[in-house]
Design a protein around this nucleic acid. Sequence first.
DNA 1: TAACATAGAATGAGCGTTCAATCTAGAATA
DNA 2: TATTCTAGATTGAACGCTCATTCTATGTTA
Lengths: 207, 207
Amino acid sequence: MQNTDPTTPPIDASRATARRQQILCAAAECFREYGFHAASIAKISSIAGMSPGHIYHYFENKEAIIAAIVAQDLESLMTMTAEFRAAANIRTALIERAAEGVADQLDPVSAGLKLEIVAEAARNPHVGQIVREADATCRRELAITIRDIRRTAGHEDSPAAIDDMVEVLACLFEGLLLRTIRNPGLDHSGVALRIQTAISDLLNQPT
Amino acid sequence: MQNTDPTTPPIDASRATARRQQILCAAAECFREYGFHAASIAKISSIAGMSPGHIYHYFENKEAIIAAIVAQDLESLMTMTAEFRAAANIRTALIERAAEGVADQLDPVSAGLKLEIVAEAARNPHVGQIVREADATCRRELAITIRDIRRTAGHEDSPAAIDDMVEVLACLFEGLLLRTIRNPGLDHSGVALRIQTAISDLLNQPT
DNA sequence: TAACATAGAATGAGCGTTCAATCTAGAATA
DNA sequence: TATTCTAGATTGAACGCTCATTCTATGTTA
């Protein structure tokens, strides 16, 4: 990856990466504003500050840009999920982090792109695969976290029961993406509190 | 719906309505498969069994077709919400109907179109307005229902508290639209049961 | 005949993509 | 140092195609 010759500055790799990121950043902006299909290469290239043709030096085609955006967006979700497992007292950590998670989901700008991605996943097999694989990873992490919390509280659940709880937890978070579009005026802190209580109740459900 | 006069064939009004519905039906199919923007008038017209130009006798433009599809989809949601209020014992009705509602939301075909609609609402002001107005109506209905249930159980909540509960209830249902795309293999009946319990817990939350 | 239903070709704009030409800056040479 | 060479970065016009929409002509019915 690194340039071994000291006489030539480390241009290539880092410059190319920066250029790629520049394109992805512009593409995300266009996708948010117009959607995947109405966002044209011409618009993306103009926002990225380069010619349309040059984009094809960094991405094979438009589909590859979409895939990269999707992967980038999901990566942030996965790191967030992984953070839960690192906490010492997991139950408290989960519920306290929930408020933060709720706030993230309620940002209408990023919510629009996330919804666009899932809608695309429903019909584009390539995007669908990326999304489903990332979701499976997140579910695995969340399942372990919930199992540990329930064990500490004295519940011994079947894996299927844990999976169902993961789904309900996911509904609470992901439902917010739709809510913030359908009702932009909702009370953020009030809803966050109610969701924290709902999560707490969920973790106390009978086996 | 039927023409009562046997001498005249059922032309004008009913024929035009049928033609319109034919177009809407074909459009919904295309929108599900390709999304709003990648679904072309040519594809819609071919599925509807008529020429591209003829579609413009029934709709001003493609945007009008999208708006009609959105309005039609939301109408079904609103009648479902209104049904809750008609029930005699509302709490039981709400929770029992929930299982049915969960099943509806988990159909991946209709889920794809619903997500497409909300994603479009995030960037298309016209669609956004239709969606937000329908949502406001649903929230009003749900708020009254929840208020009555809570009153019967002896809670007197502030309107804001009720609104927050409506949002969490909506998250549980609408989150399923994303879940069924991201994890098509989830256990429908298991999740339905957990969600029923979560709704029950939500209705028992402290004021 | 008058009015409407329908078809399908025509139009012009915009799309993703390609590609030959140009620029740029460091390496090599003198 | 001054000049030439070279390879990658970058451009923007051009291509073939599809799009939404319009227009004209042809049934079809009352």
